[in-house]
């Protein structure tokens, strides 16, 4: 674990979609799918991101442009530097020897990407199967299309895949196919519905939550979700844990620390 930000040089940039860029850098990091790193731009801010590519010591983070910090990240060029500390948190517990379904909503797909890589290794050994569902608002926002073939797609406007949500797609799929485990990341309302679907059918389920993160290592209390610290107890939680977390799908915490309706 890297305690203080280590400065890394951006060595590659890949445009995943009009709003998403992946920044590649070299760093020896013992990263497990579902964990996160804190990315620091000196004098600006520091935010949590998942690592979405791991090829030996070449790592990538996929960044959706959505605010001041991510705008600043998107303006970075090859050769510019970023501070990285981590990895933090508890990732997915991989069960690769049976059929699983991975459900990504929007940029949530980035948290699932290295998980899919791991699961695919098992697929090559004929140990199990992976079905990927990706949902977005519109076709242009779909990411990793060349990286993961045979994804089942859905969009809100119907420009790619079926017109509907990942939850609709998953529900249909569960009628036809048997999965032992569902992994999901995306908007919390979507995650809530995915968990409900799995609960009703007795399917194991793990989802990755998002909260405003400060310290990243479980001391500041900013990322609480019903007594669970998303940064260290999570960000990945399973169905049973989530059933004891009343705030899941309902309450978030603002930057001031106030718990408000999601």
């Amino acid at each position: 674990m890297i305690e203080q930000p280590t400065m890394v040089k951006i060595c590659g940039i890949l445009e995943e979609s009009p709003g998403v860029k992946t920044f590649f850098f070299k760093l020896n990091l013992n990263f497990e799918p579902g964990q996160f790193v804190m990315v620091w731009i000196p004098l600006l801010d520091e935010k949590p991101f998942t690592v979405s590519y791991i090829q030996d010591d070449l790592l990538g983070i996929s960044v959706l442009k959505k605010g001041g910090f991510t705008n600043a990240l998107h303006s970075k060029k090859i050769g510019d530097t970023l501070g990285i500390r981590g990895p933090y948190g508890r990732g997915f517990s991989l069960k690769s020897d049976f059929n699983s379904c991975v459900v990504g909503g929007g940029i949530g797909m980035a948290s699932l990407a290295t998980l899919v890589d791991r699961l695919n290794l098992a697929v090559e050994e004929h140990l199990g199967n992976v079905t990927i569902i990706q949902g977005a608002r519109t076709a242009a926002e779909i990411v990793y299309q060349n990286r993961f073939r045979d994804m089942k797609l859905c969009t809100e406007d119907g420009t790619a895949g079926i017109k509907g949500t990942t939850v609709d797609l998953l529900r249909d799929l569960l009628e036809k196919q048997r999965f032992r485990k569902v992994y999901a990341c995306g908007p919390e309302r979507m995650l809530y519905k995915v968990v409900e679907l799995c609960k009703g059918r007795g399917i194991e389920c793990e989802v990755s939550l998002e909260r405003y993160i400060k310290c990243g290592f479980g001391v500041c209390g900013q990322c609480d979700c019903s007594g669970q610290r998303v940064c260290i107890d999570g960000p990945v939680f399973n169905r049973e844990e989530l059933s004891r977390m009343e705030d899941f799908g309902k309450i978030i915490i603002t930057k001031t620390g106030e718990r408000i309706i999601h």
Binding site: E3, Q4, P5, M38, W40, L44, D45, E46, K47, K214, C215, F217, V219, C220, Q222, T254, K255, T256, G257, E258
Partner: peptide, 22 residues
């Protein structure tokens, strides 16, 4: 703003700045 808390060999350095909901 972040970074607000950072650790080092002998402890922690923090300037959270009293974030609180009032």
């Amino acid at each position: 703003k972040n970074p607000t808390v950072i650790t080092f060999e002998a402890g922690m350095l923090n300037a959270v700045g009293y974030s609180n909901p009032g």
